[in-house]
Simulated assay, not measured.
Amino acid sequence: MASFQEIINKDNPVLVDFFATWCGPCQTLAPILSDVKAEMGESLNIIKIDVDKNQAVAAKFHVRGVPMLILFKNGKELWKQSGVMSKTEIINKIKPYI
């Protein structure tokens, strides 16, 4: 399995969903992200990071609340937002970076 750094260093944009299993809004966001992936296809990768199991990664990117979405490309953080968003809102925010 590739390391987190290897995954976000790719040319293809990677949307990281920092979540917690006990977080209601995180559970609401999960099917929305599935819809985003279905629409964006291969132009976007989406990964989920459980903040309880990956505290060091969450701390490195200053994740203070969940859900937190961060878009990376070539290892650079391009966009960051916390809270639940609609599929349309997410796509509109990340499209300029793809």
Rank of each mutant, 00 (worst) to 15 (best):
M1P: 14
F4Y: 10
E6W: 11
E6V: 03
N9D: 14
N9I: 11
K10F: 07
V14F: 15
D17H: 12
F18W: 04
F19D: 15
T21G: 08
T21I: 08
C23A: 06
G24V: 01
P25D: 00
P25Q: 00
Q27S: 05
T28D: 15
T28G: 15
L29D: 08
A30C: 09
A30R: 12
A30D: 11
A30S: 11
L33V: 06
D35E: 15
V36H: 07
V36C: 07
K37T: 02
K37W: 03
E39S: 05
E39I: 01
G41E: 05
G41M: 05
G41P: 07
G41S: 05
G41Q: 07
G41T: 03
E42A: 14
L44V: 01
L44H: 01
N45C: 08
N45H: 12
I46Q: 04
I49Y: 10
I49N: 09
D50G: 04
V51Y: 06
K53Q: 12
N54Q: 09
Q55G: 14
V57Y: 11
V57Q: 10
A58T: 06
A59W: 13
K60I: 10
K60R: 11
K60A: 11
V63A: 12
V63F: 15
V63D: 14
V66Q: 05
P67D: 09
P67S: 09
M68K: 06
M68S: 11
L69I: 00
L69H: 04
I70N: 06
I70S: 04
L71A: 00
L71D: 04
L71H: 02
F72S: 11
K73H: 04
N74V: 05
E77P: 13
W79V: 00
S82R: 10
V84W: 06
V84I: 01
V84K: 00
V84D: 08
M85R: 07
K87S: 13
K87W: 15
K87F: 14
T88H: 15
T88N: 14
I90P: 07
I91L: 14
I91G: 13
I91D: 14
K93Q: 13
K95H: 08
P96H: 01
P96A: 00
Y97V: 00
I98S: 11
